[in-house]
Design a protein around this nucleic acid. Structure first.
Lengths: 220, 220
DNA sequence: GATTGTATAATTGTATACATAAACACGAAT
DNA sequence: ATTCGTGTTTATGTATACAATTATACAATC
């Protein structure tokens, strides 16, 4: 079908199916606080709210449950999970741990082609940091990490880390207006990238660990 | 509905919904090799094979995709992901890393009530090791780890680690016939349990790490 | 013979109708 | 007033019908 719809953030999304599109929209609305914690997600209500039938709604809810964002009680319905500050800290810790492992594996396993792509990404990053183009940087930043996931050559890890990405997405904007934001991120990425060039697993792991810790501080 | 059906292992399962029941059965069949890698999972075929309609089939497939066991290509269908020996090694590594983190948090956060339950579990484990009752031990073993997940007081971590459990489940039986199997597992659990009693995070993390490494060796 | 175009069949994506279980309201019995 | 029972309503669970996309077969063209 590939309908072009407009989600609640006003950004066009041309996702393949209503199910996947809806699951993304619901995810955003949960993390942005639009759907409040412990709130009951009645299927029929979502149908009307998002203008789709129950089938894609139910499939989206199954996906959200697998990611731990909602809880489904049999014959009772789906409820939004509340995320406390402690929960967010924990999630960051869990993400950090796997980002470090992904970096280790990626440095060991990266192909020449993937290395070239990473290098290109880093060049762009330097360029747009100079230009002070925050929007471009956001995408490049996400891509940098996605490339590392891919280079780890483990489908499950890539999958899990990608699903963590959403947790930071909505928190952006506040911290990024600081002057040294772009510079800091670039410098941290530079250290990680250099470890890839050197094939130095331990240096890469350390650099990524520090990058994640700083990232948490920036977005808190 | 709560129908009592019989899954392919011959074990009765009285799950709440056809969707969740089916996702468990499909998971077992993928990991046992009944559904071969790269095999296309045509919805209609699964309907006939498992005697349910398409709705629960599709919902089960969404769940399996979230766990990384199948890949869904839009408008093309679902395909079984092949897991190589390297993949299994990686999964064990990913599990080990989070088991260690769960242990750290659990030792820090465990409640008195949870501690009592863990102690009881350990007592049972000693008893059934003496009795050489492998079947009972299997359940107790799984419960021991589940209790630690719970005591970590992080829903997402508990969720993820529970989903890893299935990967070892089907591999059991071969290694467990060895005489020293039960003794080894008991001893490793004893070290972990002692760390809980002492509230020693580092000792617990080390003990769990070793337990996981040994566990991988045993099931390889 | 290989390639492209088109009609047909098969399969996925979505909507809706039906079945069943939980939530609710309300009155009777204690 | 509280508890229990019963009928009604609402929501979830399941099946099926319809729409849209993709795969297949086969003929026409080069």
């Amino acid at each position: 079908m590939a309908v072009t719809v407009r989600n609640l953030t006003g950004v066009k999304s041309t996702n393949v199916s209503l199910s996947t599109d809806l699951s993304v929209r619901l995810k955003e609305d949960i993390l942005s606080g639009k759907l409040k914690k412990n709130q009951k997600l009645t299927e029929q209500v979502i149908c009307e709210e998002y203008q789709v039938s129950r089938t894609p709604v139910r499939e989206a809810l199954v996906a959200l449950e697998s990611e731990g964002l909602i809880e489904t009680i049999p014959n009772r319905g789906a409820f939004v999970i509340g995320l406390s500050d402690k929960d967010m800290d924990d999630i960051f810790t869990l993400r950090r741990i796997y980002e470090v492992q992904a970096t280790r594996w990626a440095i060991e396993r990266i192909t020449d082609e993937e290395m070239e792509a990473l290098e290109e990404n880093f060049d762009f990053m330097e360029f747009y940091t100079m230009k002070k183009d925050v929007d471009k940087m956001l995408n490049i930043n996400v891509n940098f990490h996605q490339m590392i996931y891919k280079a780890s050559h483990n489908r499950l890890l890539r999958h899990l880390l990608s699903s963590y990405q959403i947790y930071v997405k909505h928190a952006k904007t506040a911290a990024m207006k600081k002057d040294d934001y772009l510079e800091s991120v670039l410098e941290e990425h530079r250290r990680i990238f250099r470890a890839f060039k050197d094939g130095d697993v331990e240096a890469g792991a350390a650099a990524m660990e520090e990058h994640m810790i700083n990232s948490r501080k920036r977005h808190k």
